[in-house]
Structures are given as structure tokens and as C-alpha cells.
């Protein structure tokens, strides 16, 4: 049971690093942004996991339940999700401008064009 209880955190670690791998290893700018979103989703999973209380329910009082999972991590992650989508939107807008300016969205091709 204890090992099963840690599984969520392992998934967090794997997701985090899968996203990070896409960020550092992929030259395509859109792929980097996809990696960035995965990377951030992993953190969301971590927070929500440690907010969970065994036998608890969603923190909505007044349904007769007495045990509630912690609301605070959920609040934090609501904010973080919004931050994440905002970053993605801005990043994509940048990608569009880069595509117009360079004609490419591959990092190495852009660097070649930048080299004097």
C-alpha cells in the first residue's frame, strides 16, 4: 500500500522529466512549448496528490461529509494552470512572429540565420 501511495509521485517525476527532455532536446519551438506544458502539468499533479486525504471528499462543505481533502493545493494549482496557459499563449504568439521573421521554427536553423 505504501508503495502504491508513492506511485503518484513517481509519475510526477517521470512526467516532469519527459517534459523537460522535450524542452532541452527538441529543436522545434512548438515542440518545446508542448514540452513546457507537460512539464508544468507534472507539477500540478504533484500538488494535487499531496492535497489528497484518505477517505476525504472534495472540499465542498454541507453534504454531510466530514473529511475533506485540503483545498489549498487546489487553489494554488488553479492559479498555476492559468499561469501555464498564459505562458503558452504568449509563447505561441512569439513562435508565429519568429516564423514570419525567419521562415522557420527550428531552433538550429534560426541560429544559423542569426550568426553574423
Amino acid at each position: 500500500m505504501d508503495i502504491l501511495g508513492l506511485y503518484h509521485y513517481w509519475v510526477f517525476a517521470v512526467l516532469l522529466m519527459t517534459g523537460f527532455y522535450a524542452i532541452v532536446a527538441k529543436p522545434n519551438l512548438i515542440k518545446k512549448l508542448i514540452g513546457l506544458s507537460l512539464f508544468q502539468s507534472a507539477v500540478f499533479l504533484c500538488y494535487i496528490t499531496f492535497g489528497k486525504l484518505a477517505g476525504g471528499t472534495a472540499p465542498i462543505v454541507g453534504k454531510g461529509a466530514e473529511l475533506f481533502s485540503s483545498p489549498l493545493p487546489q487553489v494554488l494549482i488553479l492559479t498555476a494552470i492559468v499561469v501555464s496557459i498564459s505562458t503558452t499563449a504568449l509563447g505561441l504568439a512569439l513562435v508565429l512572429r519568429i516564423k514570419e521573421a525567419y521562415g522557420s521554427i527550428e531552433e538550429d536553423e534560426i541560429q544559423e540565420q542569426d550568426a553574423p
Binding site: F39, L90, G91, Y102
Partner: peptide, 16 residues
């Protein structure tokens, strides 16, 4: 235009 690629790099590293 190099501002754009510089910002993109900043955006990725800053967000990481």
C-alpha cells in the same frame, strides 16, 4: 528580429 528569438529563449528558460 533577433529580439524575438532571444525572447523565446528567455521565455523557455524563465518558465523552466
Amino acid at each position: 528580429r533577433r529580439a524575438l528569438s532571444a525572447v523565446f529563449k528567455y521565455l523557455i528558460m524563465g518558465t523552466v
